[in-house]
Nucleic acid binder design. Structure first.
Lengths: 221, 221
DNA sequence: ACCTGAACACCGTTCAAGT
DNA sequence: ACCTGAACACCGTTCAAGT
């Protein structure tokens, strides 16, 4: 009786195969479960084998993130309207994080990884097409980036907490309940927001933020 | 010859003393060096002693972050003009992250910790004072928050990489050099930005982002 | 009630030894 | 050239035992 091979037989290792296996673990079992021991077991190889193909865990995570983001950016390529392109680009990143919360963690952790450059290029090109003057392009593009990366980190964090055993709305309900126990005199706004929190739509919220920034850009043109 | 006591004698432990000691380690030696063994050595106590006062490392980090952010928010309290208040509040958070990069990491990692609520309350109150209609306040306040937290994560990441042995400008120069090796046809915007990157001012960049969002808010009023 | 510190169950990474 | 897997140098956390 052959043991169940978790991977298709034993082809030679490669960075690509390693990244794919890592993504599978990250997607199905979450970011905390990705260890080199777990990963090498999936690949049915020795615990140190990975280091021949990948420098360290940071590089592996960056490569996995780039894999996901590259796909997103490829889908955005052709959109004539720069504003529309920025929206679909941003929502594409959002949906990728929704599907792979660990991508959000990773994006917000290292601003100079390749995946972030892909996003910056995508945003920057549209900013230029929008007619933002040269000396403002850097600030405008990075502001949009910061907002996207900020959301990335937050959304990934929610997913990390919620996914364990409760649904997202249950979890938000628990958060809102905690907010309502704060002193209403000291935290009036938080109290008000607690009522909306459990049933709000993250995607709408994100798009509203993008539109806010786009409005700021247009008002300065 | 008495051994040099790293802490003032052996008063009883308390959450406050633990948090203070943690902040000192985080500030002087960086976030990677904060381990419970290191921390308890500084406090000259047993390695498990902390767990009587603090649930786990996450709570400790959240408490340390709240300690820093509470100070920042206290300084902002009275500013008549809501726009000005939002600017000083945001810059206060920025300067706190500049002085304590680990605060940036921590803020971007957990959106529901108390420190984040302080910022949200500060931002939200000013958003209301600005006259943003009720149903938009949540989206607008959280968008501003996301931008601030996005910067927090990025700035902390730069500090983490740069601080090791090179100065910030040296580090940015190295990043820019890497960007210039990318295919200019595929990454035209990144190439252009690489020229500005090493000598840009992070504080100006951050303020420009805040002003962009404020402009977006005003244009919708 | 509070503290000690050995022990547990892990990590990422290295590297001699194998093929 | 590539892989193996024991070993190294750590982690956070637990918990019986002490005071």
């Amino acid at each position: 009786m052959k043991p169940k091979a978790r991977t298709r037989r034993s082809e030679a290792l490669s960075k690509e195969r390693i990244v794919e296996a890592a993504i599978e673990i990250l997607d199905t079992d979450g970011e905390e479960t990705l260890t080199f021991r777990n990963l090498t077991a999936h690949l049915s190889t020795g615990s140190g084998a990975i280091y021949w193909h990948v420098a360290d865990k940071h590089e592996l995570l960056a490569a996995a993130t780039d894999h996901v983001i590259a796909r997103v950016m490829a889908e955005v390529v052709k959109e004539a309207d720069p504003q529309g392109a920025i929206r679909t680009l941003a929502m594409g990143v959002f949906d990728a994080i929704d599907a792979h919360p660990w991508v959000g963690t990773q994006l917000s952790r290292n601003p100079w990884q390749h995946a972030v450059l892909r996003i910056l290029e995508g945003v920057g090109g549209r900013i230029q097409a929008l007619g933002v003057p040269g000396q403002d392009q850097f600030n405008v593009a990075t502001a949009l980036m910061s907002f996207i990366l900020g959301i990335a980190g937050q959304y990934a964090a929610s997913a990390r907490f919620a996914s364990s055993n409760t649904t997202r709305t249950e979890h938000l309900g628990a958060v809102a309940a905690k907010w309502e126990q704060l002193d209403p005199a000291e935290y009036p706004f938080v109290h008000q927001v607690a009522k909306i929190l459990p049933e709000h739509d993250d995607r709408d919220q994100f798009l509203a933020g993008i539109n806010l920034i786009l409005a700021g850009i247009k008002s300065a043109l």
